[in-house]
């Protein structure tokens, strides 16, 4: 995974709450067996509307998505994260993320940042007034900055460290694989096994 320190870009203001992962990437796009090429399905149904914010010329090239509360609810499909990344997004801001979506983002290197709804509203207003507004999301200083504003955000130290160092989670766990083996030796015999097949 690439190291993630800070990102500067323009914003796509998505004034909707409860954006579920079926909206981010509809199920019909999930048949692919790769992690790439999902950009054409991003917000697949909403994109049919020429007025949908993703289709508006003034927001073309935005790399920071700023959305309403409860972003990423529903299905656990990591394809939602890949679709956002494939399209060119590096950061999503919301006042609340669904747990699985947030976990997936942190594994795949899409930064999800939680700030108060009032700050979300302020960013929406600023960006709608001037779509060229540059926003910087700095993981090192844990702050979102634009114009004169600086908003602090919280992120757990471990995730922050892992993203900043670009570390592979599986690699980190494999360093402790001896403790996994030790745990396995203590598992009770009644725990079920899928093999051999019993009927």
């Amino acid at each position: 995974m690439e190291k993630y320190l800070s990102h500067t870009g323009t914003v796509l203001p998505l004034r909707r709450s409860n954006v579920d992962t079926d909206q981010i990437i509809p199920a019909v796009y999930l048949k692919r067996v790769t992690k790439s090429g999902f950009e054409d399905g991003l917000f697949g149904a909403w994109r049919n509307d020429p007025e949908f914010v993703l289709n508006r010329a003034e927001y073309a090239g935005a790399t920071i998505l700023v959305a309403g509360a409860d972003f990423g609810t529903g299905s656990s499909r990591e394809h939602a994260v890949w679709a956002l990344q494939n399209y060119g997004f590096s950061v999503v801001l919301s006042s609340r993320f669904a747990d699985i979506f947030r976990g997936n983002s942190q594994k795949a290197g899409l930064l999800t940042v939680v700030v108060d709804q009032s700050e979300i509203e302020a960013i929406w207003a600023a960006v709608e007034k001037d779509p060229t507004t540059k926003v910087t999301v700095n993981l090192e200083s844990k702050s979102v900055n634009y114009g004169e504003k600086s908003i602090a955000f919280a992120i757990d130290d471990y995730t922050r460290w892992r993203l900043m160092e670009g570390l592979d989670d599986i690699g980190l766990t494999l360093k402790n694989i001896d403790s996994v083996s030790a745990f396995e030796r203590s598992r009770p015999s009644f725990k079920p096994k899928t093999l051999p097949i019993l009927s």
Binding site: K35, G74, S75, S76, R77, E78, H79, V81, I100, G103, N104, K107, A108, D169, I170, T173, L174, I177, V180
Partner: peptide, 29 residues
């Protein structure tokens, strides 16, 4: 890798959905 894994909680199991990165993590470790 499915959010409705919570179904299995009916048996008093801690059961939850995961994404594909986590699927790989569980397969490997």
């Amino acid at each position: 890798g499915d959010s409705h894994t919570s179904t299995h909680g009916a048996f008093g199991a801690l059961a939850f959905g995961i994404g594909t990165s986590e699927v790989e993590h569980v397969l490997a470790t």
